[in-house]
């Protein structure tokens, strides 16, 4: 692994004091590549925290241009950049924070054509997408390629987060086998809730990369910010899961 430069040591000094992280953990962050799928209300904050923490390379996948209705939550977007590419604006904002960061801006959402190449080029995925079709596609591809996926989701004032270790812990399809008919593309979003989930997702990614702490494998954390109720539910693999279960032919 590459050594840290003096400037990096200065920048990350305070977080290298975290027990178990240290300079070795910082080098692991520097060497890591993370795919963040969509940099909306959740993904913007996940990307920002990972950039701040010194992750070496981020791949951002998100189609489309900035709209007024993005700006209550998509904190890497700016009013001045209205109408321009979301990922280009996000890339610029991340570089303002961390000029050492390598960003690959992919102006596409994850789809069947690009998912294999996107996942293959990273160490782990932070999934922050609004559609179950994309989420399940990423889940299946991460399982196929043996890449961890941090699954971040929110709705209204609640958040859900889990970490999927392929072959070792319950995958998304163990609990959601197909897109639920009740999920709608447009839903209530408060930026602070989306951002909180994004920060938690970044923390899971940092733990996966550095090995500190304990990730949410086989655990689904649910938080309701309306009254700050929090539950961490032990979840189980399904033996008949179409992705990771016996029926899939998975090992």
């Amino acid at each position: 692994m590459m050594d840290l430069t003096p400037e990096e040591r200065d920048t990350y000094e305070w977080q290298m004091w975290v027990p178990g992280l240290g300079e070795e953990g910082q080098k692991k962050l520097k060497a890591a590549t993370v795919l963040i799928t969509r940099v909306g209300g959740v993904g913007s904050l996940a990307a920002y925290e990972l950039a701040a923490a010194g992750v070496g390379r981020l791949i951002l996948a998100h189609a489309g241009n900035i709209k007024p209705s993005d700006l209550n939550r998509q904190l890497l977007m700016t009013h001045d950049a209205m109408g321009t590419s979301r990922v280009e604006c996000a890339s610029q904002r991340l570089h303002e924070l961390n000029p050492r960061l390598e960003v690959v801006a992919v102006p596409e959402n994850v789809n069947a054509s690009n998912v294999a190449s996107l996942v293959s080029s990273v160490d782990l995925v932070v999934c922050c997408v609004p559609l179950f079709e994309e989420r399940l596609l990423l889940n299946a591809e991460c399982f196929r390629q043996g890449k961890p996926m941090v699954d971040c989701a929110m709705y209204e004032l609640t958040g859900q987060i889990t970490t999927i270790l392929p072959g070792r812990s319950a995958c998304l399809a163990c609990r959601v086998s197909s897109p639920p008919a009740t999920w709608k593309r447009e839903f209530p979003v408060l930026g602070a809730v989306a951002g909180m989930v994004g920060c938690m997702g970044a923390m899971e990614a940092i733990k996966l990369i550095t090995g500190i702490g304990e990730v949410l494998a086989d655990r689904l954390l649910t938080i309701d910010t309306r009254d700050m109720r929090l539950r961490t539910v032990q979840v189980s693999k399904r033996i008949d899961c179409g992705v990771c279960g016996r029926a899939s032919g998975a090992p």
């Binding site: 709705y155 999920w183 539910v233």
Partner: peptide
Amino acid sequence: DRQVSAEEQTELRDGDVVTIIPPVSGGA
């Protein structure tokens, strides 16, 4: 705080806390 199957019957005991968590997917 332990998942139970929707398809199998799980007996309840006094004081149990049942949690219902529907799937969500934001990202937005």
